[in-house]
Simulated scan of single mutants.
Amino acid sequence: MTNRYEIGSLILRLMLGITFFVHGFAKFHNGIGHVVGFFNSLGIPGFAAYVIATLEVLGGIALVLGIGTRIVSTLFAFDMLGAIFTARLKAGFMGGYEFELALLVISISLALTGSRFYAFDQLRARSKQAA
C-alpha cells in the first residue's frame, strides 16, 4: 500500500525532474553559446555551462524515471546554490532568487528522503531481493 508520503515525494520528484529537464534543454536549444557568455560574465569558466546544461537534461530525465534520485537531487541542490550566490542574490527575493530557492528546497528534501514510488531504483532493489 502506498502512503501519502510516497505520493508526495513522487509529485516533487516528477516536477523537479521536468523543470530541470526543460531548463537544461532550453540552454542547448536557445544557444549554449549565450549561456557560456553569461557564465563568463559572472567569472565562471564557460565550459561549466555545458556541465550544468548536461546535468539538468540528464538529471531531469533520471528524476522522472526514478534513477539515482538522492544523488541527482544533491547535484541539483549544488546547482541552485551556485545560481543563487553567483547570479540571483543581488536581485533580492522577489524577482530574484525565489524560484531557485524553491528548487533548492525541493532538491534537499528529495536528497534526504528519496522517492521510491514508480521509480526504477525501487524496481532494481526488488529484483535484487528476489534473487
Results as ranks from 00 to 15, higher is better:
Val57Phe: 05
Ile44His: 09
Phe85Lys: 02
Arg4Cys: 10
Phe76Asn: 06
Glu100Thr: 12
Arg116Gly: 14
His23Gln: 11
Val64Thr: 13
Leu58Met: 13
Leu63Pro: 04
Ser127Val: 11
Ala49Asp: 01
Phe20Glu: 07
Val51Tyr: 10
Lys128Thr: 10
Glu6Phe: 05
Ile32Phe: 04
Leu65His: 07
Tyr50Asp: 02
Ala91Gln: 13
His34Ile: 04
Lys27Ala: 10
Phe20Gly: 07
Leu81Pro: 01
Asn3His: 13
Tyr50Arg: 01
Phe78Met: 13
Phe76His: 02
Phe85Ile: 07
Val51Arg: 04
Ala111Asn: 11
Ile11Asp: 09
Asn30Asp: 15
Phe120Gln: 07
Ala125Thr: 03
Gly66Arg: 10
Tyr5Ile: 12
His29Gly: 08
Arg88Pro: 01
Ser41Glu: 09
Ala130Ile: 11
Leu65Val: 10
Ile84Asp: 00
Lys90Ile: 08
Gly37Ile: 00
Gln122Leu: 06
Met1Val: 11
Ser115Leu: 08
Phe120Asn: 07
Thr74Met: 06
Val36Asn: 00
Ala119Cys: 09
Ile32Ala: 05
Ile18Trp: 09
Leu58Gly: 04
Gly96Leu: 05
Gly92Tyr: 11
Thr54Ser: 15
Tyr50Gln: 01
Asn30Gln: 13
Phe78Gly: 12
Asn30Lys: 04
Ile32His: 01
Phe76Gly: 05
Val22His: 04
Ser9Gly: 10
Phe28Met: 02
Gly92Lys: 12
Leu101Trp: 08
Leu112Asp: 07
Glu6Lys: 15
Phe20Trp: 10
Ile52Thr: 15
Asn40Ser: 13
Ile7Lys: 10
Tyr118Arg: 03
Ile61Glu: 05
Gln122Phe: 12
Ala111Val: 10
Met80Ile: 08
Ala77Ser: 15
Phe78Glu: 06
Ile108Tyr: 10
Ala62Trp: 01
Thr113Arg: 15
Pro45Ile: 05
Ala77Glu: 11
Ala48Lys: 00
His34Trp: 01
Ala111Gly: 14
Leu123Met: 14
Leu63Tyr: 00
Thr69Asn: 01
Phe117Val: 11
Leu103Arg: 00
Phe99Asn: 12
Ile84Phe: 06
Ser73Ile: 03
Met15Pro: 01
